[in-house]
C-alpha cells in the first residue's frame, strides 16, 4: 500500500471516530449533568435520547449564518476553522495502541510527538482570540482577551508538567513514553505533575470551573456570542475534541496508555486506552457539575503564583532524583 493511501484511510477512519465520539460525549455530558442535578437530561429524540446529537446537528446546519455588520468578515469566517483544524490535527500523532513493525496506530509516529502536540495546541488559541476580536462587539472581545491571557499562563505550567514525564521516560516520542511505563504508571512517581496537568488541562480547554472565556453570567457567551449556526457548531466541536485530546494525553503520559493494569493482558490495549480516556471524560464532566466558576483575578493569581512554582519545584526534584538514581 502506498504511504499516502495508508495515511488517507487512517485519517478518514480517525475523523469518523473522533466526530462520532464528540457527538456522544456531548450527549453523555448532558445526560450525566442531568442526573447529577436530579433531572432526566435529553430523552425525547430516539430511544433514551440517543438520536439527540443528530437532531442538534440538523438544527445547527439549518440555522441562519449571521455575520455582524461591525465584524471583520475574513477573520470572522477564518477563526472557527483555525480552532477546528488545530483540534483535529493533534490526532495525527496520538497512538491508540502498541505499534508493531510495519504497522502503527498513529498516522505519524513522530519522535518529537509530545512537543508537536504542545505546538499544535498552542496555535489553538488563535481560533478563540481572533474569533472574539473579529466579531466587532464588546463581549466577544473581552472573552477573547481573557482566553489569550488564561491560555498563555496555563500553557507554561502544562508544558512544565510534561517535562517531568519526559525526564523519567528519557524520550519525547509518545510510543517511547508509553513503553517506559511498563513497570509502573507515571502517575505514581509524577503525582504532582499529574495534578498540575489535570488543572491546566481544564483551563486549556476553557471548561468549568475555568470557563471564564464564555462566562454566561458576565459575558453573555464570551468569544462566540456573535456566532450562529454551523460556525458556532465548529467552535463547539473544537471544544469537545480538545477535551478528548487532553484526556488522551493524560492517559498516554500518566496512565500507561494502552498498557493493561494488573496484568490483564487478554483485553486488547486499544480497549484499555479507550477506557482510560472515557474515565477522564467523565471526570471533566463531573468537575463541571460540581465546582463553581472561579473569579478571573483568582484564576490568574493561581496560575502564576501557585501552579507555576509547584511545577518548577516538581521538575527540579524529578531532575535531581533521576540524576542520582537514573
Amino acid at each position: 500500500m502506498p504511504w499516502w493511501l495508508e495515511v488517507l484511510i487512517k485519517s478518514a477512519i480517525l475523523l469518523f471516530v473522533v466526530v462520532t465520539s464528540f457527538a456522544y460525549a456531548m450527549l453523555v455530558e448532558r445526560k450525566v449533568l442531568g442526573w447529577m442535578q436530579l433531572r432526566p437530561g435529553p430523552n425525547r429524540v430516539g430511544p433514551w435520547g440517543l438520536m439527540q446529537p443528530a437532531a442538534d446537528a440538523a438544527k445547527l446546519m439549518l440555522k441562519e449564518d449571521l455575520t455582524p455588520k461591525t465584524a471583520d468578515p475574513l477573520i470572522y469566517k477564518l477563526a472557527p476553522f483555525i480552532s477546528l483544524l488545530t483540534a483535529f490535527s493533534v490526532y495525527a500523532v496520538i497512538p491508540f495502541g502498541a505499534s508493531s513493525t510495519g504497522a502503527t496506530w498513529a498516522i505519524g509516529n513522530v519522535n518529537a510527538g509530545i512537543l508537536l502536540i504542545l505546538a499544535i495546541a498552542s496555535i489553538g488559541v488563535y481560533g478563540i482570540s481572533l474569533g472574539g476580536w473579529a466579531s466587532g462587539s464588546k463581549y466577544p472581545l473581552l472573552g477573547s482577551v481573557r482566553s489569550t491571557a488564561q491560555m498563555i499562563s496555563y500553557e507554561l505550567a502544562m508544558a512544565l508538567s510534561f517535562v517531568g514525564v519526559l525526564i523519567l521516560a528519557g524520550t519525547t516520542s509518545l510510543d517511547g513514553i508509553v513503553n517506559a511505563q511498563l513497570r509502573w504508571w507515571f502517575v505514581v512517581p509524577q503525582f504532582f505533575g499529574f495534578l498540575i496537568y489535570v488543572i491546566t488541562a481544564v483551563a486549556e480547554t476553557n471548561r468549568a470551573p475555568f470557563d471564564l472565556v464564555e462566562a454566561e453570567t458576565e459575558l453573555v457567551a464570551g468569544f462566540h456570542t456573535e456566532y450562529s449556526g454551523l460556525r458556532f457548531g465548529l467552535f463547539f466541536i473544537a471544544e469537545y475534541v480538545n477535551m478528548l485530546t487532553v484526556s488522551c494525553i493524560a492517559a498516554l503520559l500518566f496512565f500507561g496508555g494502552w498498557n493493561a493494569p494488573f496484568g490483564l493482558t487478554m483485553v486488547p490495549g486499544v480497549v484499555w486506552f479507550i477506557l482510560k480516556v472515557c474515565c477522564f471524560m467523565f471526570f471533566y464532566i463531573w468537575l463541571r457539575a460540581t465546582l463553581p466558576r472561579l473569579r478571573y483575578d483568582r484564576l490568574m493569581a493561581f496560575g502564576w503564583k501557585v501552579l507555576l512554582p509547584v511545577a518548577v519545584l516538581n521538575l527540579i526534584v524529578t531532575a535531581i532524583v533521576v540524576a542520582y538514581h537514573g
Binding site: A112, A119, V125, Y126, L130, W133, V145
Partner: peptide, 21 residues
C-alpha cells in the same frame, strides 16, 4: 517544533493580545 511553540504559540499570541486590547 520549537519554532511553532515559541514564535507562533507565544510571541505572536502576545501580538494578537495587544492588538485586541
Amino acid at each position: 517544533v520549537i519554532q511553532i511553540i515559541v514564535y507562533s504559540g507565544a510571541i505572536l499570541v502576545l501580538f494578537v493580545f495587544v492588538i485586541a486590547l
